[in-house]
Amino acid sequence: MKKKLVVILLITLLPGIAYCQAGKTGKLPKHVITLENTPAKRPYSPAVEAGNMLFVSGQIAVDQATGKLVEGGIEAQTRQVLKNLKNVIEKAGYSMENTVKCTVLLQDISFYAPMNQIYMEFFPVDPPARMAFAVKDLPMGALIEIDAVVVK
């Protein structure tokens, strides 16, 4: 009985002990998240995980199948951006509900309201903290780019 208790205690405590040791030495392994169709020539990763934090790269409305921006204006682009974001977050083993902060970059501030309509569909309850603003230009002439910080 005692032996069993010791074994159970060890099993439950070991991961915690290992975690504390990692904390002491500051070991938070940086882990790069890659996707099957990530182009090799890009000098950034789709997302990087360190400890229980996930930093997701700014997503634009590229359709993974065609490699091109989707057609259909700000609504279609916002939907594709959030689909891409969700895909990266889930590939990394996190979920949209774990998102704590988003930065929304718009090519024109008049996109703010239609962006919000679609955005709410992806973050229906307890939405993450956010900043949103209009920039001068986005890569590939995109209308919207969103990056995210996710914490499990």
Binding site: P43, V56, S57, V135, D137
Partner: peptide, 18 residues
């Protein structure tokens, strides 16, 4: 950029501002 981040590159957002 790619000469400073050669492997395990960070995540990134890039855009033009005013």
């Amino acid at each position: 950029y790619s000469s400073y981040y050669t492997e395990n590159q960070p995540s990134r957002a890039a855009f033009a501002v005013k």
